[in-house]
Design a protein around this nucleic acid. Structure first.
Lengths: 354, 354
DNA sequence: TTGTAGGCGTTATCAG
DNA sequence: CTGATAACGCCTACAA
């Protein structure tokens, strides 16, 4: 492959001049400039990212560390980041941690020697990112934390308004006449789980509803967890009339458990999920959910990281994205209260199919 | 960050010796060796991948080019490749083409200067990869093509047995008593679409069923396509009693169209998808599908690529993975023939939930 | 067995 | 403005 030396020969100038033309680092007389550019055209020359990175102590690489691309929430995040990165001439390196913080550390270490410009991280469970990031920043890399935050995180971040989203969902159910509301939360050591629970509780409190401890179930963010906890909820007396699942996978498991119990959603029990994944449209009933945009999350993180590359100083920025309650077919007024129930707001359109 | 020079000083040896110890490229006396290793320990030294890559003309980077990580088939492929890459000390760079072959070329060009060891590509529509790959191989990179092949591809590849999978699905439907079988295929310029159609036709031919042209519909690999084409199929007289959708997204659209037409799956019409995505479990009825393992596809590709790095010569290898027909609730004997129908094989278990 | 030194392709500094 | 030239960190002949 062509290199700068060859371009210099072809253009009949020195190596330094080629560099100046290519990087705009000094004014070069037009004729010389043109000769260089022509030589570049002819040879199809591209600068070696390796040599450039070595010299500059920084590559056009953006690294992204996530729990698991197989979890349907994450592809959108990755895609958002990749699009922004690509547009700005960066490549995205993808790492999966399986929520294992030792694997997170391994990735962090391995990536370091590639001198990435930025690092976008969805922290694993019990992440020690706050410590690691410090050493990273010394290499000049921007570290942006998204979706959930590790303990004591004080750097740049992009999250969503978890509490508000859960609050709206719970309030909506209460508005329908529900008084016996249950919540199935994700692991409560995660900040997003904590915040969603807070929002849920606030809605109850505001409506003067006393929360029954058994109605609050904590589990993992997956279908199996939702299934198991819903089984428990359905056996309670009195049985809750509505469930807020703190993500869609949990809601999916809940739906299955409801069906298996011979109950019907939403007639016997209302259900709202969280995230608003595509698959909420293909279940029956279609699942109501607190939608958030994974794409926007990833894109904002990449913007933030690359801004930080250009402008290293400045206070940490915290971007908080909005959620949107999407009501579909999985909610209804509670059976006993149907007649008295407040009229439900107009059904919002979800994705349109064709 | 520490570099080899510092290690050499700390260990009281020369730079070359450090390199020899680290790469096992020459025998070094135990005491020296130990001093080097200790210094590495103490400093937490890691070799610069950039400098190493520059010197070796090759980095520990594996690049992966796919249409779109948002398509639920691809995350599994990416994860399979990343796991293998990670295990062997490689990082995965992810690129989305949106099936746009000019974007594919842009990625290919941009990646080149990072000197990746390997390249795993799911070709875009009308890909010119066969040409591009040639120039890539000259840089010493292994190029592996997966899922579908571009025109004239003669390099390493990993695909699945598309024809066989479609054949089995169609044969199964025929075995249930269906005679009016329709197929909704993906774009027929793609090799995987072509092969699935071939398998479908072979099953019909073998059963002595004449295929009605209108029963063969070509569309894009998405829900909207499946929806539109199914609408057409449902208006035909006589109406098909079974549909083979050439991927699960198409099947999803078909399911919706069937429901909207006031028909019931499987009582009025049987449906089998292709890919066996997780979401086939959450529809109702649960979708039968020709399962393939995206994870295995990605993992095999990474193995193949990295094998090729170690062993550059040798004939092209073509790995063909098996599919597995997973029958769930979306198939039944045709209404009129129910009594006479052959007994359906035992229902295979899909994923187990808990 | 160990050390020396050249060069991979850039960028950046500093003379001219 | 333009051109040498010294790093960046590592590998690898080749020499000792």
């Amino acid at each position: 492959m062509a290199n700068m030396k060859k371009i210099a020969e072809l253009a009949g100038v020195s190596l330094g001049t080629v560099s100046h033309v290519l990087n705009g680092t000094a004014k070069v007389r037009e004729p010389l400039r043109k000769r260089v550019l022509d030589a570049v055209q002819v040879t199809g020359y591209q600068p070696s990212q390796l040599a450039r990175g070595l010299r500059r102590d920084k590559t056009n690489i953006l690294a992204m560390i996530i729990p698991d691309i197989l979890n349907p929430f994450f592809p959108g995040v990755v895609r958002g980041a990749e699009d922004v990165a690509f547009t700005k001439g960066y490549r995205l390196v993808l790492c999966n941690t399986d929520n294992d913080h030792s694997k997170e550390i391994m990735h962090l270490n391995a990536l370091r020697t590639y001198l990435p410009s930025g690092l976008i991280v969805i922290p694993s469970d019990f992440s020690e990112l706050t410590v690691q990031a410090e050493s990273y920043r010394r290499t000049g890399a921007a570290v942006v934390c998204i979706d959930r935050l590790p303990r004591n995180w004080d750097g740049d971040s992009v999250t969503i308004n978890n509490a508000e989203g859960a609050y709206e969902a719970a309030s909506y159910l209460i508005g329908l006449g529900h008084r016996r509301l249950a919540a199935i939360t994700g692991p409560l050591h995660l900040t997003n789980s904590q915040d969603r629970l807070k929002g849920f509780k606030r809605a109850l409190k505001q409506a003067g509803i006393e929360s029954i401890p058994g109605y609050l179930q904590e589990t993992t963010f997956d279908r199996a967890g939702g299934y198991a906890k819903t089984k428990i909820l359905l056996k309670m007396v009195p049985r809750p009339t509505a469930i807020l699942a703190c993500n869609d996978m949990i809601a999916l498991g809940a739906l299955l458990a409801i069906r298996e119990a011979g109950l019907h959603c939403p007639d016997d029990i209302s259900l709202i999920g969280f995230d608003g994944l595509d698959l909420t449209e293909v279940t029956s009933p279609q699942l109501s959910s607190v939608y958030q945009s994974p794409y926007q999350l990833g894109a904002a993180a990449a913007e933030l990281a690359l801004d930080r590359v250009a402008q290293e100083e400045g206070p940490a920025r915290h971007i908080v994205l909005k959620t949107e309650l999407r009501i579909r077919d999985s909610v209804a007024p509670p059976a006993k209260a149907k007649r008295a129930a407040v009229k439900a707001p107009t059904r919002k359109a979800g994705y349109v199919l064709a």
